[in-house]
Amino acid sequence: MRELTYVRASSAQEAVEAVTADADAMFLGGGTNLVDHLKLGVARPGRLVDVSRLPLDEVETRETPDGPVLRVGAAVRNADLAAHPLVRSGLPALSRALLAGASGQIRQQASTAGNLLQRTRCVYFQDVTTPCNKREPGSGCSALEGYDRYNAVLGASEHCVAVHPSDMAVAMVALDAVVVVLGPEGERRLPVADLHRLPGDAPQRDTTLARDELVTAVELPLTDLAARSTYRKVRDRASYAFALVSVAAALRMDGDTVADVRIVWGGAAHKPWRAELAERALVGQALDEDTVAAAVDTELATARTSEGTAYKLPMLRGTTAHTLTTLATTEDA
């Protein structure tokens, strides 16, 4: 039979070594997603390497040649990060995104790294009695022709139409965040935008990390643009629900026209979807409902919808327009 063993790592290095050494081992952080998966049978590790007590729970500012960054330890709890004064003042989209996620209890438990690495809530992925390429490569995608309300509309493949469920990750992409990763070969950095991937023909891989790479921190540049950011989530309940769509946005105006803008969508794709075409279309333009809608439509030109997801296009259009025009008004004030 299969044993589940548990070890509490005393250092990040030791944790990485433990996972490298055992193909059945997984990192255990706050547990809010992994423990769920253990019970569902979605994850069946033989060994849990507990990284939740590692000294990775600091939030601190660092000066870099490119300016100040906020360095957030991987184990910092979502509630603490959302409430951190520097996040509230300098990275409001991050605070808003965290507060829009899950529930008060879960935010007290979930870690920064765990939030990034949480897996899709596609109902078929979580139901081990149904085919799912993400859970069991090659078994087929049940969502493609099935319950589709929460499916992706951008960047999906015939193998997987799941969306990434994190709110926080969407904000982090808009804020140009970088993840710091420790692996067997040492430390590396990559933009959060490059952390998650599109499903292609390998939907079992959510991210570009190797299984024994440990996220140790996230670094967020403290810029003027980041300070003028927000996050807007549309969901089926007023609270405690995953996004139908969401928008992380940052905006800098030059008089009446857009000087710089970031638009990242949640609930749209297998990864936080940066709407670069829409961003480009908006720079130099006046910001009104029609301009934003037109810009959004350039991004949505490649969208593919089904009966149950067709609503996401007008919802993305409206939510993006509302978020940006609200940001512009707020900045005026």
Partner: peptide
């Protein structure tokens, strides 16, 4: 039993906490 209702909430080391999503061994 899956962190979706809050019935199992306690205060764990002073914070409100869902005990269904937490392994005892940890």
């Amino acid at each position: 039993d899956h962190g979706q209702c809050g019935s199992c909430t306690v205060l764990l080391d002073g914070r409100r906490h869902l005990t269904c999503l937490t392994l005892a061994v940890a």
